[in-house]
């Protein structure tokens, strides 16, 4: 029955649903998990890399984490190709705002603009929606550190901690259990590792399967935001520090 309403994104089914949009969201729930956690000192974004191959010539750059401007980074779940279009758009928008107002774009304005593009593809054209969800980590002087998620329908929402992609409901349950709002950035990072170690189905966790980024304030330069996309070495060190591997070994025993 539903097939009659599948082919076009712009047509409601008799039950009042847009199947293509729902399918796009479904595609994302198969993609690698991404977790975002807000702390008192900053925001952490952590992603699971799905495709890893020995033959892949990796230059060390992140695949699913992007810097948007000086104050924002984002993590992607879904089709990376679609994401790069939207990330490019976000970067252009951020620079355009900076050019006209001589101030960094407030996070929510930028997210709203990207979401408006996403929404457009659920309503007109005979085109498919963007198959990506984002986690945005940002800082602005209106609301300080912020964490947002967005999905293919063009909705976005603000969070203290959330996850998108595969096993996101399991990750969210764990976040709900373990999140505290007085986290330091380090504690938030360790929680992210801990949750990823549980939601990912591989047995040994290492930097090959993870991407990590943090957003924090500079201690030297007041008001300056630092975003860091972590190197493999730093990720391995964090995994070791967090002790998730030890827990695993104990479980095995």
């Amino acid at each position: 029955m539903s097939r009659r309403y599948d082919s076009r994104t712009t047509i409601f089914s008799p039950e009042g649903r847009l199947y293509q949009v729902e399918y796009a969201q479904e595609a994302i729930s198969l993609a690698g998990t991404a977790i975002g956690i807000l702390s008192t000192e900053g925001v952490v974004l952590a992603c699971e890399k799905k495709v890893t191959s020995k033959l892949l010539d990796n230059d060390g750059s992140a695949e699913k984490l992007y810097a948007i401007n000086n104050n924002m980074i984002c993590a992607v779940a879904g089709m990376t190709a679609d994401a790069s279009i939207l990330v490019n758009n976000a970067r252009v928008n951020a620079q355009q705002y900076l050019k006209t107002y001589n101030e960094e774009i407030p996070c929510e304005i930028l997210i709203k603009r990207v979401c408006d593009i996403k929404q457009g593809y659920t309503q007109h054209g005979g085109l498919r929606p963007f198959g990506v969800s984002f986690l945005y980590a940002g800082y602005d002087d209106r609301y300080q550190f912020q964490l947002f998620s967005s999905n293919p329908s063009g909705n976005y929402s603000g969070w203290r901690a959330t996850s998108i992609g595969a096993n996101n409901s399991a990750a969210q349950t764990l976040l709900k259990k373990d999140y505290r709002d007085d986290f330091t950035l380090k504690e938030a990072c360790e929680l992210a590792i801990k949750i990823l170690s549980k939601t990912m189905d591989s047995s040994n966790l290492n930097s090959e399967k993870l991407e990590f980024a943090t957003l924090s304030l500079s201690k030297v330069n007041e008001g300056k935001v630092i975003h860091k996309i972590w190197s493999d070495k730093e990720i391995d060190l964090l995994i070791k520090d967090s002790g998730v591997l030890d827990d695993k070994r104990e479980d095995d025993d």
Partner: peptide
């Protein structure tokens, strides 16, 4: 558009200049 948040004097001046 921005929930009653007002443009700062610096942003206003930059906008006018632009």
């Amino acid at each position: 558009r921005e929930n009653d948040i007002e443009l700062s004097p610096k942003a206003t001046a930059s906008f006018v200049r632009n």
